[in-house]
Design a protein around this nucleic acid. Structure first.
Lengths: 192, 192
DNA sequence: CAGGGCCGTTAGCGGTCGTTAACCTGAGCT
DNA sequence: AGCTCAGGTTAACGACCGCTAACGGCCCTG
Protein backbone atom coordinates (compact mmCIF):
# COMPACT_ATOMS: atom_id res chain seq x y z
CA UNK A 1 0.00 0.00 0.00
CA UNK A 2 1.07 3.49 -0.83
CA UNK A 3 2.15 6.09 1.68
CA UNK A 4 0.59 8.84 -0.41
CA UNK A 5 -3.06 9.72 -0.10
CA UNK A 6 -5.29 7.49 -2.17
CA UNK A 7 -6.05 8.81 -5.65
CA UNK A 8 -9.39 10.58 -5.65
CA UNK A 9 -12.25 8.50 -6.91
CA UNK A 10 -14.23 9.66 -9.91
CA UNK A 11 -17.05 10.68 -7.59
CA UNK A 12 -14.68 12.85 -5.61
CA UNK A 13 -13.25 14.42 -8.74
CA UNK A 14 -16.74 15.30 -9.87
CA UNK A 15 -17.69 16.78 -6.51
CA UNK A 16 -14.53 18.82 -6.40
CA UNK A 17 -14.99 20.27 -9.86
CA UNK A 18 -18.69 20.83 -9.34
CA UNK A 19 -17.95 22.78 -6.17
CA UNK A 20 -15.49 24.96 -8.03
CA UNK A 21 -17.89 25.63 -10.88
CA UNK A 22 -20.93 26.20 -8.68
CA UNK A 23 -18.98 28.67 -6.59
CA UNK A 24 -17.75 30.51 -9.66
CA UNK A 25 -20.93 30.77 -11.68
CA UNK A 26 -23.77 29.68 -9.42
CA UNK A 27 -25.72 26.44 -9.38
CA UNK A 28 -28.08 27.43 -12.18
CA UNK A 29 -25.24 28.98 -14.15
CA UNK A 30 -23.35 25.71 -14.64
CA UNK A 31 -24.50 22.98 -16.99
CA UNK A 32 -23.95 19.28 -16.52
CA UNK A 33 -21.94 19.17 -19.75
CA UNK A 34 -19.55 21.65 -18.23
CA UNK A 35 -19.12 19.62 -15.08
CA UNK A 36 -18.55 16.52 -17.14
CA UNK A 37 -15.99 18.26 -19.31
CA UNK A 38 -14.11 19.37 -16.19
CA UNK A 39 -13.43 15.73 -15.29
CA UNK A 40 -12.95 14.53 -18.84
CA UNK A 41 -16.27 12.84 -19.51
CA UNK A 42 -19.43 14.12 -21.15
CA UNK A 43 -22.51 15.44 -19.40
CA UNK A 44 -24.76 12.40 -19.23
CA UNK A 45 -21.85 10.29 -18.03
CA UNK A 46 -22.27 11.97 -14.66
CA UNK A 47 -25.49 10.07 -14.15
CA UNK A 48 -23.49 6.89 -13.55
CA UNK A 49 -22.29 8.52 -10.33
CA UNK A 50 -25.08 10.85 -9.22
CA UNK A 51 -28.85 10.79 -9.43
CA UNK A 52 -28.82 14.30 -10.84
CA UNK A 53 -27.36 17.75 -10.61
CA UNK A 54 -29.29 18.43 -7.42
CA UNK A 55 -27.75 15.38 -5.79
CA UNK A 56 -24.25 16.77 -6.33
CA UNK A 57 -25.13 20.03 -4.64
CA UNK A 58 -26.86 18.20 -1.81
CA UNK A 59 -23.89 15.96 -1.18
CA UNK A 60 -21.56 18.97 -1.20
CA UNK A 61 -23.61 21.00 1.26
CA UNK A 62 -24.37 18.14 3.61
CA UNK A 63 -20.72 17.16 3.50
CA UNK A 64 -19.49 20.61 4.43
CA UNK A 65 -21.98 20.99 7.22
CA UNK A 66 -21.07 17.62 8.66
CA UNK A 67 -17.35 18.29 8.49
CA UNK A 68 -17.75 21.64 10.17
CA UNK A 69 -19.89 20.21 12.95
CA UNK A 70 -17.72 17.15 13.52
CA UNK A 71 -14.56 19.24 13.58
CA UNK A 72 -16.17 21.73 15.92
CA UNK A 73 -17.32 19.06 18.36
CA UNK A 74 -13.87 17.56 18.37
CA UNK A 75 -12.31 20.88 19.28
CA UNK A 76 -14.89 21.59 21.97
CA UNK A 77 -14.25 18.20 23.58
CA UNK A 78 -10.49 18.59 23.33
CA UNK A 79 -10.32 21.86 25.25
CA UNK A 80 -13.39 21.31 27.42
CA UNK A 81 -13.42 23.36 30.62
CA UNK A 82 -11.35 26.20 29.21
CA UNK A 83 -13.74 28.42 27.23
CA UNK A 84 -10.98 30.70 26.04
CA UNK A 85 -9.07 27.83 24.52
CA UNK A 86 -12.23 26.34 23.05
CA UNK A 87 -13.09 29.58 21.29
CA UNK A 88 -9.56 29.95 19.96
CA UNK A 89 -9.66 26.42 18.69
CA UNK A 90 -13.03 26.93 16.99
CA UNK A 91 -11.71 30.05 15.33
CA UNK A 92 -8.54 28.29 14.21
CA UNK A 93 -10.54 25.44 12.75
CA UNK A 94 -12.94 27.70 10.94
CA UNK A 95 -10.12 29.81 9.52
CA UNK A 96 -8.34 26.73 8.24
CA UNK A 97 -11.52 25.49 6.68
CA UNK A 98 -12.31 28.82 5.07
CA UNK A 99 -8.84 29.06 3.58
CA UNK A 100 -8.68 25.43 2.45
CA UNK A 101 -12.14 25.17 0.94
CA UNK A 102 -13.11 28.57 -0.35
CA UNK A 103 -15.47 27.13 -2.94
CA UNK A 104 -17.38 25.15 -0.33
CA UNK A 105 -17.58 28.14 1.99
CA UNK A 106 -19.07 30.14 -0.83
CA UNK A 107 -21.65 27.51 -1.69
CA UNK A 108 -22.51 26.99 1.93
CA UNK A 109 -24.42 30.22 2.34
CA UNK A 110 -25.23 30.94 -1.28
CA UNK A 111 -26.93 27.91 -2.76
CA UNK A 112 -28.71 26.43 0.21
CA UNK A 113 -32.09 27.38 -1.19
CA UNK A 114 -31.52 25.32 -4.31
CA UNK A 115 -31.82 22.10 -2.28
CA UNK A 116 -34.87 19.91 -2.00
CA UNK A 117 -36.84 20.46 1.18
CA UNK A 118 -35.49 17.39 2.98
CA UNK A 119 -31.83 18.11 2.25
CA UNK A 120 -32.25 21.76 3.11
CA UNK A 121 -33.70 20.85 6.48
CA UNK A 122 -30.81 18.53 7.19
CA UNK A 123 -28.20 21.12 6.27
CA UNK A 124 -29.91 23.78 8.33
CA UNK A 125 -30.04 21.47 11.30
CA UNK A 126 -26.34 20.72 11.06
CA UNK A 127 -25.56 24.42 10.68
CA UNK A 128 -27.69 25.23 13.71
CA UNK A 129 -25.83 22.71 15.83
CA UNK A 130 -22.50 24.14 14.70
CA UNK A 131 -23.61 27.65 15.56
CA UNK A 132 -24.74 26.37 18.93
CA UNK A 133 -21.23 25.17 19.75
CA UNK A 134 -19.98 28.71 19.25
CA UNK A 135 -22.87 30.36 21.06
CA UNK A 136 -22.36 28.22 24.15
CA UNK A 137 -18.69 28.94 24.50
CA UNK A 138 -19.06 32.65 23.76
CA UNK A 139 -21.77 32.86 26.38
CA UNK A 140 -19.45 31.32 28.94
CA UNK A 141 -16.91 33.98 28.14
CA UNK A 142 -19.47 36.80 28.17
CA UNK A 143 -22.16 35.75 30.63
CA UNK A 144 -23.63 39.23 30.82
CA UNK A 145 -24.53 39.37 27.12
CA UNK A 146 -27.93 38.13 25.99
CA UNK A 147 -28.22 34.96 23.95
CA UNK A 148 -29.80 36.61 20.91
CA UNK A 149 -27.00 39.13 20.80
CA UNK A 150 -24.38 36.42 21.02
CA UNK A 151 -26.04 34.50 18.22
CA UNK A 152 -25.95 37.55 15.97
CA UNK A 153 -22.32 38.12 16.86
CA UNK A 154 -21.43 34.54 15.98
CA UNK A 155 -23.09 34.84 12.60
CA UNK A 156 -21.33 38.12 12.01
CA UNK A 157 -17.95 36.58 12.81
CA UNK A 158 -18.74 33.77 10.39
CA UNK A 159 -19.29 36.48 7.81
CA UNK A 160 -15.92 37.92 8.69
CA UNK A 161 -14.08 34.60 8.46
CA UNK A 162 -15.91 33.53 5.33
CA UNK A 163 -14.90 36.71 3.52
CA UNK A 164 -11.92 34.70 2.37
CA UNK A 165 -13.04 34.49 -1.26
CA UNK A 166 -12.61 38.21 -1.83
CA UNK A 167 -9.23 38.51 -0.23
CA UNK A 168 -6.22 40.07 -1.79
CA UNK A 169 -3.13 37.90 -1.73
CA UNK A 170 -1.24 38.07 1.54
CA UNK A 171 0.32 34.68 2.13
CA UNK A 172 -1.35 31.83 3.90
CA UNK A 173 0.10 32.26 7.38
CA UNK A 174 -0.30 36.02 7.50
CA UNK A 175 -3.92 35.73 6.44
CA UNK A 176 -4.60 33.04 9.04
CA UNK A 177 -3.10 35.08 11.79
CA UNK A 178 -4.91 38.23 10.74
CA UNK A 179 -8.32 36.59 10.53
CA UNK A 180 -7.84 35.06 13.95
CA UNK A 181 -6.96 38.39 15.45
CA UNK A 182 -9.93 40.11 13.83
CA UNK A 183 -12.32 37.44 15.07
CA UNK A 184 -10.97 37.67 18.61
CA UNK A 185 -11.19 41.43 18.41
CA UNK A 186 -14.82 41.30 17.36
CA UNK A 187 -15.79 38.93 20.16
CA UNK A 188 -13.77 40.98 22.61
CA UNK A 189 -15.95 43.98 21.80
CA UNK A 190 -19.01 42.10 23.05
CA UNK A 191 -18.58 43.22 26.64
CA UNK A 192 -17.05 46.64 26.18
CA UNK B 1 -47.41 68.89 -4.52
CA UNK B 2 -47.45 66.26 -1.85
CA UNK B 3 -45.38 66.26 1.29
CA UNK B 4 -45.03 62.49 1.16
CA UNK B 5 -42.34 60.83 -0.86
CA UNK B 6 -43.25 60.49 -4.50
CA UNK B 7 -44.90 57.20 -5.39
CA UNK B 8 -42.34 54.82 -6.85
CA UNK B 9 -42.27 54.72 -10.61
CA UNK B 10 -42.94 51.45 -12.38
CA UNK B 11 -39.22 51.17 -13.10
CA UNK B 12 -38.41 51.48 -9.42
CA UNK B 13 -41.04 48.94 -8.48
CA UNK B 14 -39.53 46.50 -10.94
CA UNK B 15 -36.01 47.08 -9.68
CA UNK B 16 -37.10 46.62 -6.09
CA UNK B 17 -38.91 43.36 -6.75
CA UNK B 18 -36.16 42.09 -9.01
CA UNK B 19 -33.62 42.74 -6.26
CA UNK B 20 -35.70 40.80 -3.79
CA UNK B 21 -36.18 37.87 -6.14
CA UNK B 22 -32.57 37.77 -7.35
CA UNK B 23 -31.37 37.77 -3.77
CA UNK B 24 -33.75 34.99 -2.81
CA UNK B 25 -33.27 32.60 -5.70
CA UNK B 26 -30.30 33.84 -7.67
CA UNK B 27 -30.19 35.66 -10.99
CA UNK B 28 -30.53 32.53 -13.10
CA UNK B 29 -33.16 31.12 -10.78
CA UNK B 30 -35.70 33.87 -11.42
CA UNK B 31 -37.66 34.16 -14.65
CA UNK B 32 -38.86 37.36 -16.22
CA UNK B 33 -42.45 36.17 -15.87
CA UNK B 34 -41.93 35.97 -12.14
CA UNK B 35 -40.53 39.47 -11.93
CA UNK B 36 -43.43 40.75 -13.99
CA UNK B 37 -45.94 38.98 -11.77
CA UNK B 38 -44.38 40.57 -8.70
CA UNK B 39 -45.32 44.01 -9.99
CA UNK B 40 -48.62 42.96 -11.49
CA UNK B 41 -47.74 42.78 -15.17
CA UNK B 42 -46.68 39.89 -17.33
CA UNK B 43 -43.14 38.96 -18.28
CA UNK B 44 -42.72 40.62 -21.66
CA UNK B 45 -44.23 43.82 -20.30
CA UNK B 46 -40.93 44.40 -18.54
CA UNK B 47 -39.29 45.09 -21.87
CA UNK B 48 -41.08 48.43 -22.04
CA UNK B 49 -38.86 49.49 -19.13
CA UNK B 50 -35.63 47.55 -19.50
CA UNK B 51 -33.59 46.27 -22.41
CA UNK B 52 -33.45 42.84 -20.81
CA UNK B 53 -33.02 40.87 -17.64
CA UNK B 54 -29.29 41.63 -17.62
CA UNK B 55 -30.01 45.34 -17.73
CA UNK B 56 -31.99 45.13 -14.49
CA UNK B 57 -29.16 43.41 -12.69
CA UNK B 58 -26.67 45.87 -14.10
CA UNK B 59 -28.69 48.86 -12.98
CA UNK B 60 -29.07 47.36 -9.51
CA UNK B 61 -25.39 46.63 -9.04
CA UNK B 62 -24.14 49.88 -10.48
CA UNK B 63 -26.71 51.73 -8.38
CA UNK B 64 -25.61 50.11 -5.14
CA UNK B 65 -21.96 50.66 -5.82
CA UNK B 66 -22.54 54.31 -6.65
CA UNK B 67 -24.65 54.92 -3.58
CA UNK B 68 -22.08 53.28 -1.33
CA UNK B 69 -19.24 55.27 -2.81
CA UNK B 70 -21.08 58.59 -2.81
CA UNK B 71 -22.25 58.09 0.76
CA UNK B 72 -18.76 57.09 1.82
CA UNK B 73 -17.15 60.12 0.24
CA UNK B 74 -19.67 62.36 1.90
CA UNK B 75 -18.87 60.94 5.29
CA UNK B 76 -15.13 61.16 4.73
CA UNK B 77 -15.41 64.83 3.76
CA UNK B 78 -17.71 65.60 6.65
CA UNK B 79 -15.34 64.37 9.35
CA UNK B 80 -12.10 65.06 7.51
CA UNK B 81 -9.08 65.39 9.77
CA UNK B 82 -10.42 63.12 12.50
CA UNK B 83 -9.74 59.54 11.35
CA UNK B 84 -11.53 58.04 14.34
CA UNK B 85 -14.71 59.90 13.54
CA UNK B 86 -14.38 59.11 9.84
CA UNK B 87 -14.12 55.40 10.51
CA UNK B 88 -17.08 55.48 12.87
CA UNK B 89 -19.10 57.33 10.30
CA UNK B 90 -18.17 54.87 7.56
CA UNK B 91 -19.17 51.99 9.79
CA UNK B 92 -22.47 53.67 10.70
CA UNK B 93 -23.25 54.27 7.07
CA UNK B 94 -22.42 50.76 6.01
CA UNK B 95 -24.47 49.27 8.85
CA UNK B 96 -27.47 51.38 7.91
CA UNK B 97 -27.12 50.37 4.32
CA UNK B 98 -26.75 46.69 5.15
CA UNK B 99 -29.85 46.75 7.34
CA UNK B 100 -31.95 48.82 4.95
CA UNK B 101 -31.05 47.02 1.74
CA UNK B 102 -30.33 43.43 2.59
CA UNK B 103 -31.28 42.22 -0.86
CA UNK B 104 -28.87 44.61 -2.55
CA UNK B 105 -26.08 43.69 -0.18
CA UNK B 106 -26.63 40.08 -1.05
CA UNK B 107 -26.57 40.69 -4.78
CA UNK B 108 -23.57 42.92 -4.51
CA UNK B 109 -21.09 40.14 -3.90
CA UNK B 110 -23.03 37.23 -5.29
CA UNK B 111 -24.11 38.07 -8.81
CA UNK B 112 -21.35 40.35 -9.99
CA UNK B 113 -20.08 37.74 -12.40
CA UNK B 114 -23.39 37.64 -14.23
CA UNK B 115 -22.75 41.13 -15.65
CA UNK B 116 -21.46 41.97 -19.07
CA UNK B 117 -17.77 42.78 -19.14
CA UNK B 118 -18.26 46.55 -19.32
CA UNK B 119 -20.72 46.75 -16.44
CA UNK B 120 -18.65 44.40 -14.34
CA UNK B 121 -15.60 46.58 -14.82
CA UNK B 122 -17.54 49.66 -13.80
CA UNK B 123 -18.92 48.03 -10.66
CA UNK B 124 -15.54 46.70 -9.67
CA UNK B 125 -14.01 50.12 -10.12
CA UNK B 126 -16.62 51.72 -7.89
CA UNK B 127 -16.16 48.99 -5.29
CA UNK B 128 -12.41 49.48 -5.36
CA UNK B 129 -12.76 53.20 -4.74
CA UNK B 130 -15.11 52.54 -1.83
CA UNK B 131 -12.68 50.08 -0.29
CA UNK B 132 -9.96 52.64 -0.75
CA UNK B 133 -11.82 55.14 1.42
CA UNK B 134 -11.79 52.64 4.22
CA UNK B 135 -8.21 51.53 3.69
CA UNK B 136 -6.92 55.11 3.86
CA UNK B 137 -8.61 55.95 7.11
CA UNK B 138 -7.74 52.65 8.75
CA UNK B 139 -4.13 53.16 7.76
CA UNK B 140 -4.14 56.55 9.44
CA UNK B 141 -5.38 54.93 12.60
CA UNK B 142 -2.92 52.03 12.40
CA UNK B 143 0.15 53.40 10.62
CA UNK B 144 2.30 50.45 11.66
CA UNK B 145 0.16 47.89 9.82
CA UNK B 146 0.94 47.04 6.23
CA UNK B 147 -1.38 48.11 3.46
CA UNK B 148 -2.16 44.58 2.24
CA UNK B 149 -3.09 43.55 5.74
CA UNK B 150 -5.38 46.54 6.13
CA UNK B 151 -7.04 45.76 2.85
CA UNK B 152 -7.78 42.22 3.94
CA UNK B 153 -9.12 43.50 7.24
CA UNK B 154 -11.44 45.92 5.50
CA UNK B 155 -12.84 43.16 3.30
CA UNK B 156 -13.27 40.97 6.33
CA UNK B 157 -15.19 43.67 8.19
CA UNK B 158 -17.41 44.07 5.12
CA UNK B 159 -18.11 40.37 5.43
CA UNK B 160 -19.00 40.90 9.06
CA UNK B 161 -21.32 43.81 8.39
CA UNK B 162 -22.89 42.17 5.36
CA UNK B 163 -23.78 39.08 7.36
CA UNK B 164 -27.06 40.86 7.97
CA UNK B 165 -29.11 38.53 5.78
CA UNK B 166 -28.60 35.57 8.10
CA UNK B 167 -29.33 37.37 11.30
CA UNK B 168 -31.80 36.28 13.90
CA UNK B 169 -34.30 38.93 14.92
CA UNK B 170 -32.94 41.32 17.51
CA UNK B 171 -34.55 44.68 16.88
CA UNK B 172 -33.15 47.28 14.57
CA UNK B 173 -31.34 49.48 17.05
CA UNK B 174 -29.80 46.64 19.02
CA UNK B 175 -28.51 45.08 15.82
CA UNK B 176 -27.07 48.37 14.62
CA UNK B 177 -25.28 48.97 17.86
CA UNK B 178 -23.96 45.43 18.03
CA UNK B 179 -22.61 45.42 14.49
CA UNK B 180 -20.87 48.73 15.09
CA UNK B 181 -19.22 47.43 18.23
CA UNK B 182 -18.09 44.24 16.50
CA UNK B 183 -16.61 46.17 13.60
CA UNK B 184 -14.74 48.52 15.92
CA UNK B 185 -13.56 45.54 17.89
CA UNK B 186 -12.20 43.85 14.80
CA UNK B 187 -10.33 46.94 13.63
CA UNK B 188 -9.09 47.51 17.15
CA UNK B 189 -7.40 44.11 17.04
CA UNK B 190 -5.27 45.25 14.12
CA UNK B 191 -2.51 46.65 16.28
CA UNK B 192 -2.70 44.37 19.31
C1' DC C 1 -62.39 64.30 -31.99
C1' DA C 2 -58.38 62.57 -34.48
C1' DG C 3 -53.86 60.90 -33.58
C1' DG C 4 -49.91 59.23 -31.33
C1' DG C 5 -47.18 57.62 -27.66
C1' DC C 6 -47.06 54.90 -23.44
C1' DC C 7 -47.83 50.67 -21.51
C1' DG C 8 -49.79 46.75 -21.45
C1' DT C 9 -51.45 42.05 -23.64
C1' DT C 10 -50.91 37.06 -25.91
C1' DA C 11 -48.61 33.95 -29.17
C1' DG C 12 -44.73 31.99 -30.48
C1' DC C 13 -39.76 31.35 -31.81
C1' DG C 14 -35.08 29.72 -30.88
C1' DG C 15 -31.95 28.07 -27.87
C1' DT C 16 -30.51 25.79 -23.72
C1' DC C 17 -30.70 22.51 -20.15
C1' DG C 18 -31.53 18.31 -17.29
C1' DT C 19 -32.54 13.87 -18.05
C1' DT C 20 -33.43 9.35 -20.32
C1' DA C 21 -32.71 5.76 -23.76
C1' DA C 22 -30.03 2.83 -26.31
C1' DC C 23 -25.80 1.27 -27.26
C1' DC C 24 -20.68 0.15 -26.72
C1' DT C 25 -16.34 -1.37 -24.60
C1' DG C 26 -12.89 -3.30 -21.75
C1' DA C 27 -11.58 -5.56 -17.31
C1' DG C 28 -12.30 -9.35 -14.23
C1' DC C 29 -14.21 -13.58 -12.83
C1' DT C 30 -15.52 -18.49 -13.67
C1' DA D 1 -13.78 -18.25 -24.01
C1' DG D 2 -17.71 -16.22 -22.55
C1' DC D 3 -20.65 -13.41 -19.10
C1' DT D 4 -21.23 -9.57 -16.32
C1' DC D 5 -21.08 -5.18 -15.17
C1' DA D 6 -19.18 -0.63 -14.28
C1' DG D 7 -18.59 3.32 -16.75
C1' DG D 8 -18.57 5.47 -20.65
C1' DT D 9 -20.76 7.20 -25.50
C1' DT D 10 -24.29 9.82 -28.71
C1' DA D 11 -29.07 11.03 -29.86
C1' DA D 12 -33.01 12.92 -28.63
C1' DC D 13 -36.96 14.47 -25.82
C1' DG D 14 -39.56 17.67 -23.14
C1' DA D 15 -39.60 21.63 -20.45
C1' DC D 16 -38.34 26.12 -19.70
C1' DC D 17 -36.67 30.65 -20.58
C1' DG D 18 -35.42 35.13 -22.63
C1' DC D 19 -37.00 37.79 -26.02
C1' DT D 20 -39.62 39.55 -30.20
C1' DA D 21 -43.76 40.30 -32.91
C1' DA D 22 -48.13 41.85 -33.42
C1' DC D 23 -51.75 43.89 -31.53
C1' DG D 24 -54.86 46.96 -28.44
C1' DG D 25 -56.57 50.25 -25.07
C1' DC D 26 -55.94 54.63 -22.61
C1' DC D 27 -54.68 59.25 -22.04
C1' DC D 28 -52.96 63.46 -23.47
C1' DT D 29 -52.60 66.98 -26.75
C1' DG D 30 -53.88 70.19 -30.86
Amino acid sequence: MSIRAAAPTRREQILSEAARLFAARGFHGVGVDEIGAAVGISGPGLYRHFAGKDAMLAELLVGISERLLTGGRHRVAEAAGDPGRVLSSLIDGHVDFALDDQALITLHDRELDRLREADRKLVRQLQRQYVELWVEVVRELHPEVGEAEVRVAVHAVFGLLNSTPHLAALGREATESLLRRLAHGAFGALSA
